[in-house]
């Protein structure tokens, strides 16, 4: 039985703050809370446009006090990993004194018994502030510590947000058999019950004939094949990039298959001698050292399975024989 697979999906976003949110987040970093005045009404959080009419606004920013009144609340019994506390807490709509509309934020109390609509609360600034909405939270009025205003820093012009989501699930049945095959030193493909075409890795269906393919379609392919396409990637640096030197990603059509393995890492082979039609033999990591760590239901990397691909020395395959393959 193979273990559940975990996937981490991350997107690092950076967003500019602009003429209204920039001063707001700069002020938060300094230990001050700003709103925006629109036709005599004060909105906090501030907005760049009139919420009633959509008209864009000149930034007429005003400083808010520390206190407000709870207009609604909910007690969060099991915080998510994104929440500002790892213990139960409240989210609340808080109408800051002088504001026209409430702001939604976290409210820390020891027990839900302390919560009520209408209760008075205060802004509690954190000691470490970076110019983000998480630089403060609310506490019952009179229980916080005094704010320390620190001015003179650079304006906050960019907000960074790392989106990070985790997924955990069993390998799906077709994937389970493919992965077990790799541990056993075999490439398992799937044959379409309609067209007879063999794809690897199987998807659990034939996307051309729109038919599901079960275990009865499994078959073992050779562990040698021909290069049908490749690209040389010169890495640029970005969040999560591990590469520094140019490397090849190749498509390899295993003998007996009708779709190539794509994105295969063939580093170790000289880039200037690499070519379409080249015949390659898989060299497996020894049984017991094979690692399924980069194989889940979403993507496949053979890096932990295949140590390298060796040229077989056979004559090259005829590139014209690959004309029906796009990759």
């Amino acid at each position: 039985m193979l273990p559940d697979v975990e996937t981490l999906l991350e997107y690092p976003y950076t967003r500019t703050t602009g003429p209204v949110l920039g001063p707001f987040f700069t002020a938060l970093r300094d230990g001050r809370l700003l709103g925006i005045r629109i036709d005599g009404r004060v909105y906090c959080p501030p907005v760049e446009y009139d919420p009633e009419t959509g008209t864009s606004l000149e930034p007429d920013l005003v400083e808010m006090g520390s206190d407000g009144t709870v207009k609604s609340w909910t007690w969060v019994t099991q915080p998510t990993s994104q929440h500002p506390f790892d213990h139960p807490f409240a989210f609340a709509l808080v109408l800051l004194d002088g504001a026209y509309r409430p702001i939604v934020h976290a409210l820390e109390v020891a027990s839900p018994d302390e919560l009520s609509t209408g209760m008075r609360v205060s802004v509690q600034f954190h000691e470490d502030r970076r110019g983000a909405i998480t630089d403060f939270h609310f506490v019952p009025a009179g229980t916080g510590t005094a704010r320390q205003v620190v001015t003179g820093g650079e304006p906050v012009t960019v907000i960074e947000q790392l989106i990070s989501l985790r997924y955990r699930e069993p390998l799906q049945p077709h994937r389970r058999r493919f992965a077990q095959g790799l541990l056993d030193g075999r490439f398992i493909g799937q044959r379409s019950p309609i067209s007879g075409k063999v794809s690897i890795p199987g998807r659990g269906y034939d996307l051309l004939e729109r038919v599901e393919v079960g275990e009865e379609g499994d078959l073992v392919l050779a562990d040698r094949g021909s290069v049908t396409a490749f690209t040389v990637i010169t890495p640029i640096q970005y969040y999560g990039q591990k590469e520094t030197e140019p490397y090849i990603r190749a498509s390899i059509l295993l003998d007996g298959g009708d779709t190539p393995l794509t994105g295969v890492d063939v580093r170790g082979l000289p880039i200037d001698e690499f070519r379409i039609g080249l015949r390659l033999q898989a060299v497996w990591w020894p049984a017991g050292q094979r690692d399924l760590g980069e194989i889940d239901n979403r993507s496949v990397s053979l890096d932990g399975i295949i140590e390298r691909w060796n040229p077989t020395g056979e004559p090259d395959a005829d590139p014209d024989s690959f004309e029906e393959f796009a990759l």
Partner: peptide, 18 residues
């Protein structure tokens, strides 16, 4: 993404407020 997502304000919690 500026005022709410960094707090992890999720649909269930917001529904609680409503």
């Amino acid at each position: 993404p500026y005022f709410m997502a960094p707090l992890g304000l999720d649909p269930t919690s917001l529904a609680g407020l409503q």
